[in-house]
Design a protein around this nucleic acid. Structure first.
Lengths: 347, 347
DNA sequence: ACTTTTTACTTAAAGGTTTTAGACTAAAGT
DNA sequence: ACTTTAGTCTAAAACCTTTAAGTAAAAAGT
C-alpha cells in the first residue's frame, strides 16, 4: 500500500512522532540525538522506504551539493576519446570518490545555448585548459566558489601545471642529439582554425601564452641551439587531438620534400598517427625517421616501435587539482607537476 | 559596491519593482509577459549580475534538474581507463549535449558509503551493466524516474543490448575455421573473484545470466560444434578489463602446456595484452597463434597485427540509450544493436 | 454601450530540507 | 535542597524558486 508520492522528511517525522529536526539530525549529525532513537529512526526509515533527505532541498538550504564540476575545453564527447583527458579525469575521480563527492562534467561548448544554470550546482570547479571565449567560464567565475585551474594559469586561482617549456625543450634536444637534419613539427591548437593546415610565417611569430605556444617556442629554441632551422611551412596545426586529423597532417609531412627524418609531435596521439603513416609508406622508424611524442599515454608503450615521449603526469594533475580544491588550499597555490623524459624505441 | 551575498530572484524583483513571478517568467516563459518588459528585465539582470534562477531552488520546486545520471558498474576512475566505457559515454554525451542536458556519472562502488542522496538529482538514469549488489541501484529504482538499462536486461525497463550469444558464436566460429586445435579462453568477470585465475569445473557449469556467461556459453558451444573441447583449466577469469591483469592471464595461458594455438578473448584489451605477451615470447601472430577479441575499440585497428574482433557498437549503444531516455520511449522498448564481425590480421 | 476575450502582471502557496535558539529532563556538583 | 551542567529533543525561520489562481486593464466582438 505504498503511496506514489515519495516520502519526505516531514512525513516521516510525523509518522514517527518526532520533529523534523530530529530526523535530519539522525541522518546528518549523529551526536545530536541518543544512539537508541537514531537506531530506531534509521531502521524505521528503511522500513518505510525513506532513503535520506532530498538533495535539491538540502542543497538549497545548505548552499552546497556535494558535486564538483569539471569545465572542459571542448565537447564532452571529444574528451571521452582523448587519452590525456581520460587520465586526467581518472585522477580527479579517484580523489572525489574517496571524498564522497560526485563529478559533473561541463563543457560549455555544447551545440545549444547553456541555459540550465547548472553552474550553480557544484561546490567547486576544476577548469581544464584555456577557456578563452567560453560563456560558461564567465558564469562559473561569478559563482564565487573555489576554483582550481589546470594547464592554464591565472593570477586569481590556484593552479596545477607543468613546465611546458622545459619539457618540450628536453625532448626536442633528445631528438636533435640523434642524426636528424630535416625536421617537421606536428602541433596542436597552434592557431584558431578548425582545419589541419601548415602555419604561416606571420603565425609563427604571433606570440601568445597558450600551452601549445610555449611548447612550440621550446621546440624552435632547441632546434636553433642545434644549428638547425625550421620553416613555418614545416609546422602543422592540428585543431583537435584526434587520430584521424593527425594522420592527415602526418601524411602531408611525410610526403613533402625534402624528405623529413625527424618529427616532433605535440602529443602521443599525433605520434602514433605518424608511426602508422610511416608504416604505410614503408618508412622504418627509428632507422629512417625519428619520432617523439608528448604525454605518455598508455598506448605509447604498446606501440610498434614503443614511443619515446615525455610523461606529463596527467593523472597526477587530476589528483592534485581535486585535492587542492577539496582541501581548500585557498592560498592561491601554484603547483608544478614534474615531467619526465621516457626514452623508448622511436628515436 | 557589490554585496557579497549572491543576488536572488526576489531581490531582483524588488529592485525592479515587479513580482517574483514576472522575473521567473522572464527567464522561463517568455510568452507570459510583454516583450518590452522582458527585455528590460533581462538587461537589468545582466547589469546587476543576476545570472538566472538558482538551480537548487528551481530543482526543488520543479522536481527536475536537467541532469541525467549514468550508473556505472565499477569505480569512476576505472571507467575512464576503459576504452569500451569511453566509447559508450561518448555516445551518451553527444546526445545529451544536443539536448542541453548535463551528465552526472555515478558509480555506487566508491570506497566510502554513498550518503549524499545524489540519486535524487537526475531526471533519469542510464544503468550500464549488471548492478547486482549496488545499493545505489536500489535507491535509483525507488526514485521512480525514467530508466534505461544497457548491457543488462530487466523486464521493468527499456534496454539497449546486443545479442551476446550470436556475436560470440560468430567470432568463435571464425577462429575455429582456421587450423587451431589447442584453445584457451580469456574471459572477463566470469566469477566473483577479484583476482586473475583459472576457473574450476564447478564454476564452468554454474549457469548465470550475465553478459560474460552468455558469451562464454557461445564460445563453448562453437568449440563443441567443431569437435574440439575445452577444459575449465584453459579458461581464465579476469576481474576487470585492465591491460595489466590481462597480461598476467595471457602469460599464464601462453606458457602452459600443451601449447595453445588459438586464444579467444572476451575483450580487445585482453587481446591486445595477448599480442604483447606473444611478442615477448617470440610467438608470431597469426602464424603460430590466432587471437580474436571483442568490442572493436579504436586501438584494435592500430595494433600489430591489427586485431580481428567483433564490433559491438559501444558508442551507438550510448546514443540509443540517451535517446530512449529523453524521448521517454516509456513503452519498455527493447533495443538490439547489431554486431559485426571485423576481420583483420590476428586470425 | 455593453459583454467577452485577451493580455499583462501579481499574490501567495508550495516544494523538502537544515539549523539556531530554546525547552525540558535528568544527572551531577555543592 | 538548590544550582549547574549535560543531554535530548523541538519550534520555527530560512533557503530561492515555480506556478495555479486571480486581478485589472485593454482590446475585440456584437
Amino acid at each position: 500500500m505504498q503511496s506514489n508520492k515519495p516520502l519526505t522528511l516531514k512525513k516521516v517525522a510525523s509518522i514517527l512522532n518526532v520533529s523534523t529536526a530530529t530526523i535530519s539530525n539522525a541522518f546528518n549529525r549523529p551526536d545530536q540525538l541518543s544512539a537508541r532513537l537514531r537506531e530506531r529512526i534509521l531502521s524505521e526509515c528503511e522500513r518505510l522506504g525513506y532513503h535520506g533527505p532530498n538533495l535539491a532541498a538540502r542543497s538549497l538550504r545548505k548552499g552546497e551539493s556535494g558535486v564538483i564540476g569539471v569545465l572542459l575545453t571542448d565537447s564532452l564527447a571529444y574528451h571521452f576519446t582523448d587519452a590525456v583527458a581520460n587520465q586526467f579525469l581518472q585522477g580527479i575521480s579517484e580523489v572525489l570518490e574517496k571524498n564522497n563527492k560526485q563529478l559533473l562534467m561541463l563543457s560549455g561548448c555544447s551545440s545549444g545555448q547553456i541555459a540550465t544554470g547548472i553552474e550553480a550546482l557544484p561546490d567547486g570547479f576544476i577548469i581544464y585548459g584555456t577557456q578563452d571565449h567560453n560563456p560558461l567560464f564567465e558564469r562559473i567565475i561569478r559563482q564565487n566558489k573555489p576554483i582550481v585551474t589546470v594547464d592554464f594559469d591565472s593570477p586569481d586561482y590556484p593552479s596545477v601545471n607543468i613546465d611546458n617549456h622545459a619539457a618540450a625543450f628536453e625532448i626536442a634536444n633528445h631528438l636533435l642529439a640523434q642524426s636528424v637534419d630535416t625536421l617537421a613539427i606536428l602541433g596542436l591548437r597552434l592557431i584558431h582554425s578548425d582545419r589541419v593546415c601548415r602555419i604561416t610565417q606571420d603565425e609563427l611569430y604571433d606570440q601568445s601564452e597558450s600551452v601549445s605556444r610555449r611548447r612550440l617556442d621550446a621546440y624552435i629554441e632547441a632546434i636553433k641551439n642545434n644549428n638547425l632551422d625550421i620553416d613555418a611551412e614545416r609546422i602543422w596545426h592540428i585543431p583537435l587531438n584526434l587520430y584521424e586529423q593527425a594522420k592527415q597532417a602526418a601524411k602531408e609531412a611525410l610526403t613533402s620534400l625534402p624528405r623529413v627524418n625527424g618529427i616532433i609531435c605535440m602529443s602521443d596521439t599525433i605520434a602514433l598517427a605518424v608511426l602508422s603513416v610511416a608504416q604505410e609508406l614503408n618508412i622504418s622508424v627509428p632507422q629512417d625517421l625519428k619520432v617523439i611524442g608528448f604525454d605518455d599515454i598508455p598506448e605509447a608503450k604498446r606501440a610498434t616501435p614503443p614511443l619515446t615521449t615525455v610523461c606529463q603526469g596527467s593523472k597526477l594533475k587530476g589528483q592534485l587539482a581535486a585535492e587542492a580544491l577539496l582541501d581548500k588550499h585557498q592560498n592561491t597555490t601554484k603547483l608544478m607537476v614534474p615531467t619526465e623524459l621516457v626514452i623508448r624505441k622511436s628515436c
